[in-house]
Structure formats: C-alpha cells, structure tokens
Nucleic acid binder design. Structure first.
Lengths: 250, 250
DNA sequence: GTCAGGTTTCCGGTGAGTGGAAGACTGGGC
DNA sequence: GCCCAGTCTTCCACTCACCGGAAACCTGAC
C-alpha cells in the first residue's frame, strides 16, 4: 500500500484488505495491512460501519457489509445481463455439466459476474467478483479481441503473467490468438491456467452489436471440442438475442 | 438526503443515488439527487471513478463500478453461504419450480443474497442485494424470530409497513407470528406482499446452531402447503449441515 | 497478578476538501 | 449556419473536518 492521501483512497485501502482468503479481520489487522495509523483506521472503520459498508461480527472482527453487496448488484452486468443470461447459462450447464461462467471486461482485466459450478468441478479458481488477466482466459481473449485498440495496446505492452508452460507469453503470440478469435468468433484457452483444463468462450453482444460480455465453459483436458464449441457459441448468441441484439443488423 | 457532513457520508449519498430503476445517471443528476453542489459532486465522482467504485459509460453516464461487485462478493453470506447453499437451492427449485431465495438479516431488514427464479416467475419483487422489511416476508419472520431481543423490540416499536390487506400490521399480531415460527421451525408469509402469492421459509443454521440465513420459496396462492413446507425445511436443514451444523448438538 | 495485544478516547494543528463562479463544451431548435 | 439551455470542467482562497501521537482502557492468557 503506497500511503494513500485522500480520505476516499484511505477508505478503499481499508476495504481492499478484505479478500477471499481473508474475509474477516480485526481492527489492528486492518491497520497493519492498510498501512494506516491505528487511530485513523479506528475512526474510518467506525464511519464505514455506520454507513453499513462494513459490519462488525459478534466476535469483534470486521466483515464487508451488505450495503456493498447491494451496491455491487447494481454494477453493469449484474443488473440486466445477469438476470437475462442465467437461464441460458443453466442450459449450457445442463449440456456440459462443467463450470459455466459469464464475465465482463473492466479495464485490462476480466471480472466474473456469474458462475454455475458443478459440484465436482474441475476448477475453483474463479468466483463471482473475482478478476483475472485478459490474455490467458477464454473469456479474456474474447473480450480483448473486441476491446478498443488502446486497451489491446496496453495489454500487449505490459508483461504477460504466466500460469503454466502453455500460457501465452509473447505479444506476438497474443496478437495471433486475438486474430484467430476475431476470425472464428470464439476462443479456446488451452491449459493456460491449469494443465488439467481448457476453456471455450464466446462473445455476448448488446443491442448495438458491441461485445458486452463473454460466456465460457471450463472442461477437463481431453474433452472433445466439437461438442463444447457449438454449445458455447449457441449460448452466447442466445444471450445476445435476449439482450436485444438482432443478428441481421450490420 | 439530510445534508451529510463527512466525506464518506457524501460519497455514500452519491452511491445511494443508484438504484435498480436508475442504474446509470449523469453528473448533474447525481448532484441533484444527492443534494451535493455540482462541483463537489464532480470532484468526488472523479475520485470514485479512479478507485473503480464508479464507472463512466461511453455515453457519459456514470454506473456502479465492478470494484463494488468485487467487494460485495466478500460480504457475509456471499462468500461461504452462497457457494455451499446453491446446489441445495437448485434442488429446491427442481422440486417446486418457483422462485427460490436465500436471505440474511442486516439490522432490521432482510437482504437477499441469492435467488433462483423461474422463467415464468409469479413475482419479480426481489433481486440479489435488494432489501425488504422483516415483518412481512417469510425469510424475514424466520430471521426475526431468531434475532436478538433488541432487534425484535426495534421492529415491534417501529411502524409496520403495509403492502396488502393481509400484511401483519400490529405488534401483537407480529409477536404471535414470531412465537409460531419459533414453535414450528418454519414461517409462512401468506399474501403479505402480493395477494397472488405466499412464501414458505425455513432457517439455515451455522456450525454453532445460530440462525445465519433463511431459505424460502414463493408460490402462487392456492398451492398446497403440505408439499412445499417439507421441501423448504429439508433444504434449510441440508444447507445447515453443509455449513457444519450438527443437528445432535444442543 | 502481570503482561501483551487489541481497542477506544482525546485534542491541537493543519492541509485536504469545499463550493461559488466563470469558462468550455455539447446538441437541439430554428 | 447561429443561438441558447443544459451539462460538464477548471480554478482558487477559505476553513473546518480530518489527522495521528499518546495515553487510558479493556480483554484474555499464563
């Protein structure tokens, strides 16, 4: 935490202390992880609790408040997209029986907005609200391929985080992948995150034809693609149609 | 908006402008609805955008940022509860084919944390993140019956909002309902929100036996209760068990 | 009892936040 | 094309809300 100056920055650096692995913390932990003085932390936390942005558990620890769930539910993708897409995601899940996910782009990252996970899912990497880089996930490739040039350049210029030996590592490789995605209308991210899975993703378009989200399924390595690809693409088209996209339009 | 003084209050009064019916607003609208001077609004909004708490759509309007979805996903109920409960909620949906919901209590309100809605659902009142009073919903009655006395007193002392002619309106009536819920181990909210539906709710318990959430199904008026009640109660027990509750314990 | 850790309260100095005003953009009407 | 109403952005000097060190206050463990 590089010493935030404005009050809002401080408040958010407090909120950022909470993660999936650390969902409840004490006041002192908040102070330590955020780098803010204890008394400052105390004052801020008290206000945040008043605003219901934080919540004090009976054991004295602080948790993220339900107010933030409420607000988060209004974020783009959560509102319209989520509700309309869910039935189709369920259909896709019925067919494939593997982890189905819906994601949108936020800057140079993917954010998952909905997920249906098989009980014995092959991966548990993603959750609703979690983020991943654009270059190494199926949804990421689809979203990046449709993103403004400025975003693509930013991703191509930054170092590409490597997860496995198969993760796309060079800008050149990424450029080729994006071209392929644009040509084919879908993306396959083959063992880029874990060696035991690959994912297939397809775009979701809004009324004006822009790519607003991406659907994907994560399946175990070895699964035949010829069954998965059409299912995912169909799902993407179905959601697009539910959002008001008319395929005939230019 | 009663003129907030602290910066955080101001920031949250801006965020509060966003609702389900008003998910994207312009700067001036934010200023007007929050009661803050335009220049102040502008400065705050700019910081919030930098922090990704807000997002500027291409058309210039502001929306809630994905950062808040990310944070909201860490709120109690979203993290553990949600994931563990979903399979059972789906089972309940399979059986009943009507709107299934999972909710927790926040102060004197119910907050819905998960929902599975039938495509041709009888109601569309609730959404993930939305709030309702405790006295008139099935989940609310279950949660209130298990709440600390202070909370019960607060609800009993406040005016009870009325939705239909059947909504519980007097403290006496509410007290009796709560006693019944405690005795029976489930709640029925009969036509209290809409005259065409009633809901059946059951408690979900954490490892230490505390009621941490409630499950419910909303069914059309006229549906036989003898099939719905056992299904909902079973679902509540199943989720409780998945959370580590051992029924044998006191 | 003592001690270590965490939590709450206090208060004077000060710079981050304030908001009125003026200027820069829209886009819609004629 | 021109104008105008509404919206957005920038500027800047005042001032009050925020800052954080310090000290008191709670725990519970040993």
């Amino acid at each position: 935490m590089p010493t935030p100056k404005s009050l809002l920055e401080r408040a958010f650096s407090l909120l950022s202390v909470f993660t999936v692995d650390r969902p409840a913390v004490t006041l002192s932990e908040l102070s330590r992880h955020s780098g803010l003085p204890l008394s400052t932390t105390h004052r801020l936390v008290t206000s945040l609790v008043e605003l219901r942005a934080l919540d004090r558990a009976p054991n004295g620890r602080y948790r993220v408040g339900l107010r933030l769930l409420e607000l988060g539910a209004l974020s783009p993708g959560s509102l319209d997209l989520r509700d309309r897409a869910l039935p189709f995601l369920e259909d896709l899940y019925e067919v494939t029986r593997h982890n189905v996910q819906l994601a949108v782009r936020d800057g140079t990252e993917v954010v998952y907005v909905e997920r249906i996970s098989a009980r014995d899912a092959v991966n548990v990497v993603t959750r609703v609200g979690s983020r991943m880089p654009l270059h190494c996930t199926g949804v990421g490739l689809v979203l990046l391929a449709a993103a403004p040039v400025a975003v693509q350049d930013a991703v191509l210029a930054a170092p590409l985080k490597r997860y496995t030996a198969r993760t796309i590592a060079s800008p050149q490789e990424l450029r080729e992948s994006l071209a392929r995605v644009r040509r084919d209308g879908y993306a396959i991210s083959d063992r880029q995150i874990e060696l035991i899975t690959y994912s297939v993703a397809a775009p979701v378009r809004g009324p004006d034809g822009d790519v607003v989200a991406a659907v994907s399924v994560v399946v175990p390595t070895g699964t035949r693609t010829d069954t998965v690809v059409p299912a995912v693409r169909t799902c993407g088209l179905a959601i697009s149609r539910a959002l008001g996209w008319a395929s005939g339009a230019p």
